[in-house]
């Protein structure tokens, strides 16, 4: 330590290294999702909770409910609860843990880092979904054997697609709120407040106000997702999902992105 060693000398006319590629940035962001204890256990707890949810179905559900669909729905609860948190922390930690000072000086074009985070969290979500579907399948086989009933595979590709989309929309909503607030606690609270309070209030409003009931599907994002859970998406349902999604997902994401690009990093 006392003998100072200077860093490797730089070339007099250094070649300007190219921009970090998006693939590289996505790899870095994926690594950042799991390289802390908090991130690792968040992902691990999704798997653990999916196993617990499957076990509960196996033990308590009636024989008629030992089907792949039920196991998949059960797995959806922990995923739906925790994946948005993963997306939120990926964005807000740059501010709350102040790592943005490093991240945004290594790649000052913040839109690229934000895009890399979006891709990385979607990749993590798809991985979590695949693992959960596999665990649910194992649980279905085990559950049928333990309860002495036939194994029922009542879910096709389209049901699995609907269910996966549902998980991804939750993740993206968390991501959008994270860009909007950039403070972990606030983004998480707003996300759950939206899911638990706002969507409830909108349902109450629809129950009492006929005019709102008529337009609810077009403006209430949670309500517009119900056909996804019941596997009854049709043309109008897709249009309503797009319309309400623009209001609750794309608009906050656009404003949030603008804020991330402008926000001072301290």
């Amino acid at each position: 330590m006392s003998t100072a060693t200077a860093p490797t000398p730089y070339a007099p006319a250094p070649g300007t290294a190219p921009k970090p590629s998006l693939v590289r940035l996505v790899t870095v962001e994926l690594r950042k999702l799991v390289d802390t204890r908090a991130g690792f256990w968040l992902l691990a707890s999704i798997a653990i909770l999916v196993v617990l949810a499957s076990a509960s179905v196996m033990i308590w559900a009636p024989d008629s409910a030992i089907t792949y669909d039920v196991f998949m729905q059960a797995a959806g609860y922990p995923i739906g609860f925790l994946l948005p948190v993963l997306a939120i922390l990926s964005v807000t930690s740059e501010w709350s843990q102040r790592t943005g000072l490093v991240t945004f000086t290594m790649e000052p074009r913040r839109i690229r880092t934000l895009l890399a985070k979006l891709v990385a969290t979607v990749i993590a979500a798809v991985a979590a979904v695949v693992v959960s579907l596999a665990l649910a399948a194992v649980a279905n086989v085990l559950g049928a054997a333990v309860n002495g009933v036939d194994t029922v595979w009542n879910n096709g590709a389209s049901e699995i697609f609907d269910w996966t989309l549902l998980q991804l929309l939750g993740l993206l909503l968390g991501f959008a709120f994270a860009t909007l607030f950039r403070i972990s606690a606030v983004a998480i609270v707003v996300y759950y407040a939206y899911n638990l309070v706002i969507s409830g209030l909108l349902s109450v409003l629809a129950a009492f106000q006929e005019w709102f009931a008529d337009i609810q599907g077009w403006v209430d994002f949670s309500f517009a997702q119900i056909p996804l859970t019941t596997h009854s998406m049709d043309g109008e349902a897709w249009a309503q999902l797009a319309s309400s999604g623009t209001i609750w997902l794309l608009l906050p994401l656009a404003v949030g992105t603008w804020l991330v690009l402008r926000a001072e990093v301290k």
Partner: peptide
């Protein structure tokens, strides 16, 4: 700057790192 890390070394706050 295309790849700032190769041109400018920046240390603005040594504590601004994820504690974990």
């Amino acid at each position: 700057i295309p790849n700032p890390g190769t041109k400018v070394g920046v240390l603005l706050d040594a504590s601004a790192q994820h504690a974990g």
